[in-house]
Design a protein around this nucleic acid. Structure first.
Length: 250
DNA sequence: AACATCGTCAACCGCGAAGAA
DNA sequence: GTTCTTCGCGGTTGACGATGT
């Protein structure tokens, strides 16, 4: 792996202490971001991607080293069941852990243990009752074509007069024409990140899905009676949907 | 001691999304 | 609307140390 790689003469492979020091000094001075400027600023013969990765996965001061605690592993399993291989989202809920750490840990420890210990997998990955195989939640359920106008946290679907599903906050959403099921993955991620308390939000916050005062206590709301069912995927109720993303119930 | 195999984890690659031009 | 650039992500690779034979 070591050596000068590529036709452009950009260095690849393991990082030296000197390179680490240069990169650290650069990021501390200029801050994270603008990675395309980092190699020249730091005086490194590395590509921007390599610089970014080295910082985020190894040099960043907040990174926690050492073994994963039982709690972390437990949380990881729950989140993985919820999110699938969304390592960055999972890592976001594990302070100090990077997506790469989580991914590596999962691929080595958890996967391995699943092979040798089918029992534990059943405990985490399958419902006790043999209903349907539990599918990993992919936020195709209700996503937004653009995250901003619907505001994601404030957004909520309802049926309009002509029968089309629209987004409403306290006022009809400005982007209502885009609020059908045709939404992109980034919005899904942001929405889901919001739903699980990304951005440092509190999972226990009962008002999490609010934005409209009527929805302040979502857990107490009778979802199935009040919400439009045409927004749900087949054979799913709103209760099912919100149940799925209630981490505290996992 | 020598070799083979396994496990870990840092690093690379390719792709898609988003924003700017 | 199209093209280009940048960023961020997940999948994969490969170096290297540990362990087994």
């Amino acid at each position: 792996m070591e050596g000068v790689g590529g036709s452009l003469g950009v260095r690849k492979g393991a990082w030296s202490k000197v390179e680490d020091d240069l990169l650290t000094a650069c990021v501390l001075k200029y801050g994270e971001g603008k990675w395309h400027l980092v190699p020249s600023r730091a005086g490194l013969n590395r590509c921007r991607k390599s610089c970014r990765l080295r910082w985020l996965n190894y040099l960043k001061p907040s990174i926690k080293r050492g073994e994963f605690s039982e709690d972390e592993v437990d949380m990881m399993k729950r989140l993985h069941r919820l999110l699938g291989n969304r390592w960055s989202l999972i890592a976001g809920r594990l302070p100090g852990r990077t997506a790469n750490d989580v991914k590596n840990f999962w691929n080595t420890n958890v996967r391995k243990s699943k092979v040798s210990s089918r029992k534990e997998e059943i405990q985490y990955a399958e419902p006790k009752e043999t209903v349907k195989p539990h599918s990993v939640i992919k936020p195709q359920t209700r996503t937004l074509s653009k995250p901003s106008p619907c505001s994601l946290r404030k957004w909520f679907p309802s049926k309009d007069q002509d029968g089309t599903t629209q987004c409403h906050i306290t006022q009809p959403c400005a982007a209502s024409t885009e609020c059908n099921d045709n939404h992109n993955n980034n919005a899904k991620d942001k929405w889901l990140g919001t739903a699980i308390g990304d951005n440092g939000s509190n999972l226990e916050n009962d008002k999490y899905f609010s934005g409209n005062q009527d929805w302040t206590l979502m857990k107490d709301f009778n979802l199935d009676e009040e919400l439009p069912t045409d927004f749900l995927i087949e054979d799913q109720s709103w209760s099912d949907f919100f149940l799925d993303i209630n981490l505290w119930d996992l």
